[in-house]
Design a protein around this nucleic acid. Structure first.
Lengths: 186, 186
DNA sequence: TATGACATGTAATCTGTTACATGATTAG
DNA sequence: CTAATCATGTAACAGATTACATGTCATA
């Protein structure tokens, strides 16, 4: 009875459907932008669209006009928009950090079009909060690794640096948003 | 007839089997270290071990001694070791960079125990070489994005920073290895 | 002897990949 | 008319997740 779980590709699609699109449009976005990581293959997208429609999160309508070439345009339903917003505004957990940042970055990238700058700022602050204990934990692990082979130690140091750089970026992005907010943009 | 492709989990297992281990041992390593990203669930590991054994890359032997509790220890076969080394020494491509760095970092982490410091150094240099054009490409994309929403631009900047930090790290790691090499460690 | 940790495995299900199939439209 | 491209899909398969099943051993 619990609502069926939606995979990352599903949310990526919901996010892109803030602007109504056909399956083919989505494929082009996936393969041409930095969203290549989310498969743009038809065998993934069309079944995903069918699932989302079955769950009543999107609705497709065959486009009329210019020619009879069938071309289905999908739009978010109110339920789909709510689901997308709920997912984007989930607090960021340690799990989110250690299981790769793709999901977090996807949520951030979709936050502004789907909700607005306030949501983007909230994600950044949640990220900053989650990063600090995570970094402490990694540094402790490094201390406990004095004896390990150099490559293992260096690999961990790489992770630490990348999270430090992420933290820097998050703070930079926060000030960017706060300045913009004061400026009084749309 | 082409050799069946081995997924990342398979290579992670081959790498850990530089030190002979049981399935349970592997699960513990996966769930306790930063390799959590590679599933430690029994439904993934045991079938993977069976596949690798079928491909003659590892061989399991039931442990004798202390109690009758069955506990199978797996070891690399010569073929398995060769396959692991071939995978680790593959040159690093743009594809490797843009499809997440997990695979590259896994190869680096396994390189020293499986081959030796020379292989680790070679990976780092290959990485440094691949990163520079990749970074140039990303910076060009950013230039072309002046008009995009702030969140999309910031997300790209995050990527750029993370690759810059990776490049810094690679150079730091290279000097570390070169110093060690001169020092004449084992 | 009952509980919990050790150790291994299986079955159902879901998602994604690869490769193929189909038909409409446009360009030469 | 033919080929290329647009646009949508399906089928077979591989791999992972989840949840369950089984049995051993130590300890209270």
């Amino acid at each position: 009875m619990s609502p069926p779980k939606i995979p990352a590709l599903g949310y990526a699609i919901l996010g892109l459907l803030m602007k109504p699109s056909s399956g083919y449009d989505l494929r082009k976005v996936f393969s041409s932008t930095s969203m290549k990581t989310y498969s743009g293959s038809p065998g993934a997208i069309y079944p995903a669209l069918q699932r989302l429609e079955k769950q009543d999160l999107i609705r497709g309508t065959v486009e009329e006009g210019a020619g009879l070439r069938r071309r289905q345009i999908f739009r978010l339903t109110p339920k789909g928009l709510a689901e997308l917003r709920a997912w984007i505004t989930l607090p960021i957990t340690r799990e989110d950090l250690s299981s790769g940042l793709k999901t977090v970055m996807l949520r951030f990238a979709l936050s502004e079009p789907a909700i607005g700058p306030d949501a983007s700022l909230a994600i950044l602050k949640s990220l900053e909060t989650a990063l600090q204990p995570h970094l402490r934990h990694l540094r402790e692990q490094l201390q406990a690794m004095k004896a390990a082979p150099a490559s293992a130690r260096l690999a961990l140091e790489c992770g630490i640096r990348s999270y430090e750089s992420l933290l820097d970026w998050a703070r930079y992005a926060i000030t960017t948003y706060e300045k913009e907010g004061k400026g009084g943009t749309s």
